[in-house]
Design a protein around this nucleic acid. Structure first.
Lengths: 219, 219, 219, 219
DNA sequence: TATGAATGAGACTTCATTCAT
DNA sequence: CATGAATGAAGTCTCATTCAT
């Protein structure tokens, strides 16, 4: 991660390009099964120049993980802090999560498969961030139980169902698939909320409230 | 009366042990990142002897995949053929699937992560089997819609939700976890069926009908 | 102005050196019995660097075969196309063939012994080239029969005698041996032509006509 | 070569079978490229039993060489000692040599290609035997010059031509080929004698004298 | 006699990385 | 900024051979 000091203006641009290409390769073949030589070929750079940009192979993995978890956590924190119904916030979080997954499918492949190749501090940091994200979901679910929207559930199991349903999407989604994040989120949440909500809760009204929220916040 | 050239009586036993150990290692570190030397160390065998049992590294991967898909497909075919309500059969399939996942967590890790390292015929065969399993789920969902139990859903998306929810379980489950297959299946199906069923369908009655089915079939 | 990825200026030179050294080793010990480690030691390179130059062991074999058959076929085609008496052309071909054999004895060892270790396309190509060379000899012999210089022979057996006599030379010839290609060719052809020619043919005149041809073509 | 003491009656028979099979394999693939496992498969024996018969891989090579050189030297010595015209003896030797080559093509392949894999005493002994055979040919050629049948030749080069022409035959001959040893010997000797003999020598008469000799010795 | 299990060296090849230029 | 050459460990796999049974 320590980048050599004093780079020209094009450095960061090219660096980001290389990380993109690496994410695509890692997603297709796996991190361990992708060689530096292959990366260089795709990037159009000899190995020496490649290392000038990437530092090390593991560095690439770190960057890819950061690209996934950085925006995701930022958005999740923002949503969790909204002054809205926890169920609505869960719905917003769902759509954000799916949006991130669909927007960067190859990054997600790497994120889901290869985080175990991180070592030491990189790994610790990653796991901390993953736990933070899970905690946000968990807290929203607990809040929804406290407001009476949800019945009394095992909060951890509810969170795991939420994550199972969303996170496994990368396995079959593909660019130009038939469904976008908004649609998938609506469907997933319809399923989850039906299962989670209390007897009297108006599940069908959620989408209306979401529309109202969007009117308000875009105003 | 000398045996013809082949393998001795203890061969298959030891072979299965080695596959077990390989599955554990592959699950922890990934197939590509696990070396033959490491496998040999765990098995307590020199490399030559190891190869006497395994044939090749990819062979191990094939065996592990077969151990997952073999029993799973057998059970799924049997359940799909039962003369029962499709919703009940989905519930049975769910529990079987979760039972397989929890019983062989490390095999499932490998199954989910490393099938891409299979080549040629091995890969083709695997993908065919995966599709067969998915087809069974899909057909049951369609049946449930036809009987009026489920509302009109996109069958493929319903199947993917079913699989998302179940298959991602390996990511967080662990030996001696708090929940068994029966419990998880009940919870997952409660969620899914609430989301999928028609307005008038008696979701709560599913578990009772399951109990009745079990009484019947054990009789 | 940086070079595009590829190979530096010294690459090809070193590569040819390595092929030379490989030919010497293969000739002495056989292709199959010569290890990459040994090659590296002789070349003064670690295994990694060696592979940077050679690509694969079989590649070395291909290059060695090409070094033999490339010049040989070029020369043979040129000679066959000359507007001269077929017997004279056979004499010229004989000397060229012996010149190639004596000039690259170790290459010829490998060429004669280890072509069977080539696989697939490499092997097919080699066999095609070998057959082309044999065809050239065969056609010249047939021509010589048609002009009446040779008696009526089984053309294939005549060709095989020609090749037996020449090609086996590598088995006993050595650098700084007492005989050069010109001398050996004269002797071999004296033997062969005596056996092949018609009753009235002036065998002894062949060498004189050769000298005349050389005068003409050097003028 | 030291065979374990005290074997049953079938030992030697089976041993010879195995050597036959080894010769076939070595001829087709080369000594170095043929594995003991492959030999065992062909022989229908596990590796332990195979070693009981063969002692070591190099032993097989020794046996194969002996099977070639033993009969050849015996026959050559006998022929050289005949009280006949040296040219006739050369003709007899030629036919014997070709007979041995054609009768055991795979042994000859091994003999020609893999003698270099012999080490130490095995190698020394082989080379001594080879030289003895060459000496016999050389002496006959010198005799033929002394009797005036042949012109004055470089005896060593004459011998090498003789051997080139005969020994290279294994490269293209095959079982059920169109030509037998008698025919090939007649052709080869016709070529060689035409080239070697003095002006007045009756080459054509050689075959007649050969027939007379055969009448005499079968009588 | 014969088996099958075991060894350990060595086979060919690829790897991530470094560095002088 | 970028190259190409080099390393040495590690990758998967095969080898000839031994030996308890």
């Amino acid at each position: 991660m320590p980048r050599p000091p004093g780079h020209g203006p094009g450095y960061e641009v090219k660096r980001q390009e290389i990380i993109d290409q690496a994410a695509a390769l890692f997603a297709k073949q796996g991190y361990a099964a992708t060689g530096i030589a292959e990366l260089g070929q795709v990037a159009g750079l000899a190995k020496g120049a490649l290392y000038y940009y990437i530092g090390s192979k593991e560095n690439l993995l770190v960057e890819i993980q950061d690209r996934v978890l950085g925006p995701l956590l930022t958005a999740a924190r923002r949503i969790a802090a909204l002054d809205e119904d926890p169920v609505l916030r869960l719905r917003l979080l769902s759509e954000t999560l799916l949006g991130n997954i669909l927007a960067r499918l190859d990054h997600i492949w790497v994120y889901e498969h290869d985080y175990r190749h991180l070592r030491g501090a990189n790994r610790t940091r990653l796991l901390r961030q993953r736990r933070e994200f899970e905690k946000i979901v968990l807290d929203l679910l607990v809040e929804a139980m406290e407001t009476g929207a949800f019945r009394s559930l095992d909060p951890r199991l509810a969170m795991l169902q939420f994550l199972n349903l969303h996170n496994h999407t990368y396995q079959w989604a593909h660019r130009n698939g038939p469904w976008d994040a908004e649609f998938l989120s609506r469907e997933y949440c319809a399923t989850l909320m039906s299962g989670f909500c209390s007897a009297g809760y108006d599940v069908a009204g959620l989408e209306k409230r979401l529309a109202e929220y969007r009117d308000r916040s875009s105003a």
